[in-house]
Design a binder for these strands. Structure first.
Lengths: 125, 125
DNA sequence: CGTAAGCATCGACGTTCATCGATGCCACCA
DNA sequence: TGGTGGCATCGATGAACGTCGATGCTTACG
């Protein structure tokens, strides 16, 4: 059954970044792999703190370090690192180490891919 | 703290459909309420089965009943109802009762709102 | 070389979630 | 009116998640 196809799929943490999820939601005959990849993409944004992180990075012109993110979010530093990891694993964020500091920035290619998935091609109503 | 603002917010099941989440991810100063609403929208699509449901309804010209959805998904009927409820609560699906059968269809207004949230306005890179 | 600071990881805890079988409710039909 | 079938709900179970404090690692600075 299809449920077995899902179980055999790689849904664990820290695999390769979410790839192969470029088909829009109204693509004909969306495969099980595409469904898993697409769900992983949306799942990464299924937390309010992660939405705020993406928002903060989207409005920021330059990459932002964790030391600036943490006070803006009102959660502890380990939790911020946890969320950042989820977003990096999903391929939405890019991490850059500058000496002691870790800077994060949006992956605009991935964001465009997200918009492409969420946008229905045959939208008429 | 902001974490308290999240806790005081309505995140339970079966509230009013997800509203007030029209701001794109790169809107300046995204509020905590908007972050919660946006996350709820993405969270509804954070499951492979729900992605496939949306896909099936997107390619279908007419509303689809649960009896047709269940064999296509390969999961039991209670689980299908569970996922459909999540999507209806998120405001993405519309339920219509026709005698014994329950028909579901995409809410195209909500889908356009989703595309608007996922699309960055100042996309240049 | 020792100390401080930024960040990731670990272990733990409580909550949420996906899934199923069993059951209940309602519409339809003979 | 009794039976059948479609669908939602309930209760249980195992897995995943968000959060935190504690800890470890690496870099920078006296």
């Amino acid at each position: 059954m299809n449920v077995d196809a899902y179980d055999a799929m790689d849904t664990k943490a820290t695999p390769a970044p979410v790839m192969g999820c470029c088909a829009p939601l109204d693509a004909p005959q969306l495969s099980a792999e595409e469904a898993v990849a697409t769900a992983a993409l949306f799942k990464a944004l299924g937390d309010p703190h992660r939405v705020r992180i993406v928002n903060l990075l989207a409005v920021a012109a330059a990459p932002v370090c964790v030391c600036d993110l943490t006070p803006s979010l009102g959660i502890t530093q380990p939790t911020v690192s946890h969320h950042l990891r989820k977003l990096v694993d999903a391929g939405l964020l890019i991490r850059e180490q500058r000496g002691t500091w870790a800077y994060y920035a949006l992956d605009h290619v991935a964001m465009r891919r997200l918009a492409g998935v969420a946008t229905l091609t045959g939208d008429s109503s």
